[in-house]
Simulated assay, not measured.
Amino acid sequence: MPKIEVYTQPGCPYCVRAVRLLSSKGVPFEEITALHGTAERTAARERSGGRTTVPQVFIDGRSIGGCDDLMALERSGQLDPLLQVA
């Protein structure tokens, strides 16, 4: 299984949507709370190449992007292979 990390912020509807999709896939992932001004938010920005919004999703260290990017991968059928699910 790939290592999946999701940087989120409480109350963010896009974060909820991304987490819900990953949960529905039955894959384990780490949800990292990344509030404005925290080291976690800085890490998310640096790892994503400067993106400042949440969620930020990483699969095996590779930046996938945010919620819209994750949903686009799902619609195109490209998410399951990344998550290694049937």
Rank of each mutant, 00 (worst) to 15 (best):
1 M>P: 04
2 P>I: 08
4 I>V: 10
4 I>R: 07
4 I>H: 01
5 E>K: 06
8 T>S: 01
8 T>Q: 01
9 Q>T: 03
12 C>D: 05
14 Y>W: 11
14 Y>S: 09
15 C>Q: 04
16 V>S: 00
16 V>C: 02
17 R>P: 02
19 V>M: 03
20 R>N: 12
20 R>M: 07
20 R>E: 09
22 L>S: 08
23 S>R: 03
23 S>I: 04
26 G>T: 08
27 V>T: 13
28 P>K: 03
29 F>I: 01
29 F>K: 00
29 F>S: 02
29 F>Q: 00
30 E>D: 07
31 E>N: 07
32 I>W: 11
34 A>D: 04
36 H>L: 02
36 H>I: 00
38 T>N: 15
40 E>S: 10
40 E>I: 02
42 T>Q: 13
42 T>N: 12
46 E>S: 14
50 G>D: 11
50 G>T: 10
51 R>N: 01
51 R>M: 04
51 R>G: 03
53 T>E: 02
59 I>Q: 04
59 I>D: 02
62 R>E: 07
63 S>L: 02
64 I>V: 13
66 G>V: 07
66 G>A: 06
68 D>L: 06
68 D>W: 07
70 L>N: 13
70 L>E: 10
73 L>C: 04
73 L>M: 07
74 E>F: 14
74 E>T: 15
75 R>F: 13
75 R>V: 14
76 S>K: 12
78 Q>G: 10
79 L>K: 12
80 D>A: 15
82 L>C: 05
83 L>E: 05
83 L>R: 01
84 Q>W: 12
84 Q>I: 08
84 Q>V: 11
84 Q>D: 13
86 A>R: 13
86 A>H: 13
86 A>W: 13
86 A>Q: 11
